[in-house]
Nucleic acid binder design. Structure first.
Length: 245
DNA sequence: CTAGCCTGTCATTAA
DNA sequence: ACTTAATGACAGGCT
């Protein structure tokens, strides 16, 4: 949808109410904030409802060198928001701050005290809406930043955890190989020192060493010849008649 | 001059 | 039904 954003001030529903502030009033603004004239033009182009600054035919002291003077919103004028100006131009009897911050009941109470025109009521409603939304937007953005920061920390934490786990994995891997190697040496040592009744060594192709439940070591004949000699490969114990050392 | 950030505003939606 | 908070989307101003 072609929505007018930014400086667009046209309230949605209520009919377009073009309000023109007095020239002198505008002039005051123009002196304090030369740029106002610029936004005035812009407002006109965008068909603003509360357009407040008549782009004075005179071109309103459009700063020749806007560069330096363009420090709009500085000085005392800085504190005046566009709605403050609109409120002035429409001679609203209530300050923008009150319009925005008073609780509904008090707000209605205040409003009912005056005989306001439809245009004024419309502006008041919009000022309240904009004022509250402005704060909401600020909170929303702050919240969003906080969430981003929080997520970034979470990413960092998880990354650290990942690194730690990897280090642990590497350590455990080394440890496993070390123990595996140690076991292999021990296995060979034991196996080589075994002798059958005739005093001959056992063939590692035909026998393997296994540990029983009670911790004792058994010499077990391999099921099929040509089977792996790897000590780590599991072999089911076959006979009880084997040498036991 | 362009890019990116900031802020205000509007439209919507949900509470 | 009305008000308001939250949020996406835009646009203008600034750096």
């Amino acid at each position: 949808m072609a929505r007018m954003g930014g400086s667009d001030d046209s309230p949605p529903a209520i009919g377009q109410i073009q309000v023109r502030e007095s020239f002198s009033f505008f002039n005051t603004f123009a002196k304090l904030v030369p740029e106002v004239s610029g936004s005035a033009v812009e407002h006109v182009q965008h068909n603003h409802t509360y357009h407040m600054s008549p782009e004075g035919p005179s071109g309103l002291s459009r700063p020749t060198s806007r560069d330096k003077q363009k420090n709009r919103r500085n000085e005392n004028e800085r504190s005046l928001t566009r709605d403050d100006k609109r409120a002035r131009s429409m001679s609203l009897p209530i300050t923008c701050e009150d319009i925005i911050n008073l609780p509904m009941d008090e707000f209605n109470e205040r409003i009912s005290k005056y005989d306001l025109t439809e245009a004024q009521l419309s502006l008041i409603r919009d000022i309240r809406r904009r004022g509250k939304n402005k704060v909401a937007a600020q909170n929303c953005r702050k919240r969003k930043l906080d969430q981003i920061i929080h997520l970034a920390e979470e990413v960092k934490t998880i990354q650290t955890r990942k690194n730690d786990l990897y280090k642990e994995y590497e350590y455990l891997n080394l440890e496993r190989n070390r123990i595996k190697n140690k076991f292999s040496l021990l296995y060979r040592h034991i196996f080589q020192s075994l002798r059958d009744p005739e005093g001959n060594p056992y063939s590692p192709h035909e026998y393997s060493l296994q540990q029983s439940a009670d911790g004792s070591i058994l010499l077990v004949p391999r099921s099929s010849p040509g089977h792996s000699v790897d000590p780590s490969s599991s072999n089911k114990p076959r006979g009880k008649d084997d040498a036991k050392q």
